[in-house]
Design a protein around this nucleic acid. Structure first.
Length: 699
DNA sequence: ACCCCTCGAGTTCT
DNA sequence: CTCGAGGGGT
């Protein structure tokens, strides 16, 4: 029997921590590398739990390196990215009983089942936390990642390991590889206690349990996470290598429980839409007493064969859906309407609200989208309005409470001029339909300071030039001081600062070190991938994807520039060339030509190219198994988006075509493939699944 | 000619 | 996340 952690002296704790760490590490090697465990799973978990308990009681221990955490788990500056072997998808939403019936009916119809055949669905609370994927290999916890964008998340292994109820080693005979997915959350009680502690320590408090859980899991220092009471429910899975533990959804979750993972006891099996809705209503009544936040119910087709047959529509499974509780609403007073100017000159009205709590977050701004929206809802300054958070995130104004309208409230008149530069603001007229654009735009262009700042922000942003240290605040500051007016100015900042008497390091908020870091970050971006460079220019309608298309087609910046300038003539070959790039049509070709034919853009480009060198995009392989092959993708792809698949294939030197012909070499067919598959079979074209394709290209 | 999907652009708060 | 519009397939 070991001494309770609380009665150990720090020195004793430290000694035991070191001893346990070494012991756990040898067991990890015996089990993992030699596949020859020397102790039972239960004993192993006991060691782990003792180790964690020590770190919890003596947080300073968690900061020490330990072999039990594997090598090199010293606190990282940032989280490493982890690509999910199987993407973590989102769920479609339904909001009422009719839509639940539609969902059940859709599943039934897709499977070709008659009304007499019963289909079972699981129903479970939808926990309001963060989804997380935990990978076990040979039963040992190897890695844990946040959901991220669904395809790539952040490595939070060290932090997840501090969550007591997540086993470091699974019990029983788990598959060789098991990626368990579930929700990390915080209970109401723990949340209140944490906030009280934070407040007492003068630290910032969290708005709601979800944010507290997210903030805790994303601590760079896992010793901090260890002090936060996080919990976990397992409800799904990603990659599994080895025999499936069950053939049904509820069977899988039961198996998870057998492996020692926490699961939600409220999951039930339903056999009709009526039963599902009844569960939803019952849970709604119990909601406040659960002790943790939920935002609805998730229904899943229980039979895993059915799940496989149902497949996916774009990024959501057809076999599951989230039944959300109605969005929480609140009433507040609209104090003012402010006009924001976007990078493209778009004028967006934003409601300034009397701060109000909606769904656990204090809201003081809400977008009003455009002037038609204001007119449609007849929103006036001084009105009392109903606010809700759409899709649980973005606040929106639902309606005006007319009874509370002040007698002197006048209809809102949308400004006809730009609030930043005073230029005329117009709604462009579509030449074909004669209809006015929904957005009103400032015509100031270069002279508009608001647009200039927004363009600079875009230029520096993460997916564009990615200049660290030049955030929104810094850009606004440098613009105001007249130090940076256009993108090229960024790269002459350092020499100008050296020559100037008013050094940046003397301004408030800057120091010698931060200025040095900033200059280093700028230097690092003097060479940048061509696609990023094109995107950074902020050409209208040219976002990330289209920038990549242009970069891939032209290969280097001068080729694009020459062609785009020649494309100023709509009848030119150059215009046709751009137009013929797959995914680029008339409108985009014209936008590109317009940008490059503008004289001030030309001048700015010359200045910029004197400072920055666009480098070729990632090379196209010339010796891959698919080099020179013509490939067609059809049906739903499950591991990546079609565009990603295309980009990847092109990187490997394959040509991606949209339709099957005699020249086609390979058809990659996903679920739901139709006419192309038929045509390929007729033409004798080689057909393969997405998995076979990935195996072939070695991905 | 129409329909579906993807992309761009704008937005909130921690 | 949501809207509208552009592009491509049917």
């Amino acid at each position: 029997m070991s001494i309770p952690e609380a009665s150990l002296t720090p020195a004793q704790a430290r000694a035991e921590h070191a001893r346990l760490g070494a012991e756990i590490a040898t067991h990890d090697i015996a089990y993992h590398q030699n596949d020859a465990p020397t102790i039972s799973d239960a004993d192993y978990d006991a060691l782990r739990r003792r180790f964690d308990a020590l770190e919890k009681a003596f947080p300073e221990l968690a900061a020490l390196p330990s072999p039990a955490r594997g090598v090199g788990s010293a606190p990282a500056q940032k989280f490493a990215k982890i690509r999910h072997a199987v993407p973590m998808l989102s769920l479609g939403n339904v909001f009422d009983a009719t839509e639940v019936e539609d969902f059940v009916e859709r599943v039934r119809r897709f499977l070709g089942l008659g009304p007499e055949t019963p289909v079972a669905f699981t129903a479970e609370p939808k926990i309001d936390g963060l989804s997380c994927s935990i990978r076990y290999e040979n039963g040992v916890l190897i890695r844990a990642a946040t959901r991220g964008d669904g395809f790539e998340g952040e490595d939070v292994t060290a932090n997840v390991k501090t969550i007591g109820e997540i086993p470091h080693r699974l019990h029983g005979a788990a598959p060789a590889v098991l990626e368990v997915r579930g929700e990390v959350y915080m209970t109401h009680k723990d949340f209140a206690a944490l906030n009280a502690r934070q407040a007492a320590a003068g630290e910032k408090t969290f708005a709601n349990p979800r944010n507290a859980a997210a903030g805790s899991l994303r601590q760079l220092d896992s010793a901090m996470t260890a002090q936060r009471p996080l919990h976990f429910f397992a409800y799904a899975w990603g990659e599994i290598v080895g025999p499936m533990p069950a053939t049904t959804q509820h069977g899988m979750v039961t198996a998870f429980k057998g492996f020692g993972l926490p699961t939600n006891a409220r999951m039930v099996l339903c056999h009709s839409a009526a039963e599902m809705v009844a569960f939803f209503n019952r849970l709604g009544e119990d909601r406040a007493g659960l002790g943790y936040d939920i935002d609805g119910v998730v229904y899943k087709a229980d039979n895993l064969d059915f799940q496989e047959r149902l497949g996916f529509v774009s990024r959501a499974p057809r076999w599951a859906v989230a039944h959300k509780f109605p969005a929480e609403q609140a009433t507040t007073v609209l104090r003012d309407i402010e006009i924001q100017v976007g990078r493209t000159g778009s004028l967006t009205p934003v409601a300034k609200l009397e701060p109000v709590t909606v769904g656990g977050v204090v809201v003081s701004n809400a977008t009003l989208h455009n002037e038609d929206e204001i007119a449609r809802k007849d929103i006036r300054i001084g009105d009392t309005v109903v606010v809700q958070r759409a899709g649980d995130v973005i606040p929106q104004i639902v309606r005006v409470i007319m009874e509370k309208r002040p007698a002197d409230a006048r209809p809102y008149e949308f400004s006809q001029v730009c609030p930043a530069c005073g230029s005329a603001a117009i709604r462009e007229i579509d030449e074909k339909t004669g209809e006015a654009d929904v957005v009103r735009r400032c015509t100031g262009g270069l002279i508009c300071p608001a647009q200039a700042v927004e363009r600079l922000k875009h230029f520096c942003s993460r997916n564009a030039m990615d200049i660290e240290g030049l955030g929104d605040k810094q850009i606004e500051f440098f613009y105001e001081k007249g130090l940076i007016k256009t993108p090229a100015d960024i790269f002459t900042l350092e020499p100008r600062d050296k020559a100037s008497l008013a050094k940046i390091e003397n301004y408030e908020g800057f120091g010698k070190l931060s200025v040095k870091n900033l200059f280093a970050a700028i230097e690092a971006r003097r060479s940048v991938e061509l696609n990023r460079f094109i995107f950074a220019l902020g050409i209208r309608r040219i976002g990330e994807t289209n920038a990549r298309r242009l970069a891939r087609h032209f290969g280097d910046f001068n080729a694009l520039r020459t062609a785009a300038r020649a494309a100023g003539d709509p009848a030119s070959d150059a215009r046709a060339e751009i137009n013929n790039i797959s995914g680029v049509g008339n409108v985009l070709a014209e936008a590109v030509a317009d940008f490059f034919c503008e004289e001030h853009n030309e001048r700015e480009l010359d200045r910029l190219l004197a400072e920055v060198t666009p480098t070729p995009m990632e090379a196209v392989a010339s010796d891959s198994p698919v080099t020179g092959k013509i490939v067609v993708f059809t049906g739903a792809l499950e591991r990546m988006t079609r565009e990603e698949a295309k980009a990847q294939a092109e990187r490997l030197g394959a040509k991606v075509s949209g339709s099957v012909s005699k020249k086609t070499d390979i058809l990659v067919a996903g679920p739901g493939a139709g006419s192309k598959l038929t045509r390929a079979q007729e033409a004798g074209v080689r057909v393969m699944s997405e998995d076979e394709w990935l195996a072939m290209i070695g991905a």
